[in-house]
């Protein structure tokens, strides 16, 4: 099994949209070079100003790429910078050095909290992003076990239901790329594996590129084609390991072996996120 230790993977420096501080390719459609296709993430450095005004570096050189049909799982303990990377990829944080290119097409996003608009019904929340084609809404709601809740307001939903509505919002309109921040958080193992299967379907059947962050190894192993492990302060990409079809076909034995090697290399992945902050 190939296990490249370093963070960087082969990436073409295609003619593209270099961005240094303001830092991000414009999120409007049409702003990306049409030939780019996949996701290219190259973050050279990211720092925050702390209370005293000093810059504190949270991310070092971080480089990865992905194409449609792949599930990438950013794996790290909480507080390591996963959300920071996702925010940079989404264009919500432009204060960094580096270059991001997104696949062309629709973007589906699930934030850590549901972020449903409380003054709109579930259906209006979904229609807001669905554009003209809203026929998928009842189908997708049924798929996550929420058939018939269209007329409810988010206040009437439990947190778990609201998160599933947010998932439907991300899945609407066949996104070219799905970005999910801690989608498995606070899910029981069964729901987590159902969600993992659903995300794997979105990637493998609809050709979406799925980028998710998690501190939880098991559901990541259940759906990811590649594990991107973040570690250190400032965080670096410590591993970019394919798990992929080989692992899934080889059965439980191979899975256990892979997990053991992963844990022996990165023991912090086994620990529950009791401590906040880098290991």
């Amino acid at each position: 099994m190939p296990m490249p230790g370093g963070g960087s993977i082969g990436q073409s420096r295609a003619a593209g949209h270099a961005a240094r501080r303001p830092g991000h390719a414009d999120p409007l459609p049409g702003a990306h070079p049409p030939a780019a296709g996949g996701l290219h993430v190259h973050i050279q450095a990211k720092s925050y100003a702390d209370a005293g005004g000093r810059r504190r570096e949270v991310l070092g050189e971080t480089r990865f790429a992905g194409t449609g049909g792949e599930v990438l799982a950013l794996l790290a303990p909480s507080g390591t910078g996963k959300t920071t990377i996702l925010r940079i990829v989404l264009g919500l944080d432009r204060d960094f050095e580096g270059e991001i290119r997104l696949p062309q097409g629709r973007l589906g996003v699930m934030f850590q909290e549901p972020r449903l608009l409380p003054w709109l019904t579930v259906e209006a929340n979904l229609r807001l992003v669905a554009g003209t084609d809203a026929r998928e809404i009842p189908l997708l709601l049924a798929e996550v076990g929420l058939a018939g809740i269209e007329t409810l307001h988010p206040k009437a939903l439990s947190l778990g239901m609201a998160r599933r509505v947010a998932l439907v919002r991300a899945l609407l309109g066949r996104p070219a790329m799905l970005v999910l921040d801690e989608p498995f958080a606070s899910l029981d193992p069964k729901s987590a594996s159902e969600l993992a299967a659903l995300l794997a379907r979105a990637a493998h059947q609809q050709g979406a590129l799925v980028l998710l962050s998690t501190h939880d190894l098991d559901p990541a192993l259940g759906c990811a084609d590649r594990l991107l492990v973040l570690a250190g302060t400032p965080a670096l990409l410590a591993a970019d390991w394919p798990t992929g079809a080989a692992l899934r076909c080889a059965g439980a034995g191979a899975g256990r072996l892979f997990k053991q090697r992963l844990l022996s290399r990165f023991p912090f992945l086994g620990a529950e996120p009791a401590t906040d902050g880098a290991p």
């Binding site: 999120p27 409007l28 459609p29 989404l90 264009g91 919500l92 973007l107 996003v109 934030f111 909290e113 972020r115 608009l117 807001l128 992003v129 970005v179």
Partner: peptide, 16 residues
């Protein structure tokens, strides 16, 4: 600001 981010990532037109 969370709803602003929602509008940005889903590319909502200003009218919406």
């Amino acid at each position: 600001p969370g709803f602003d981010e929602l509008a940005i990532v889903y590319r909502l037109p200003w009218r919406q």
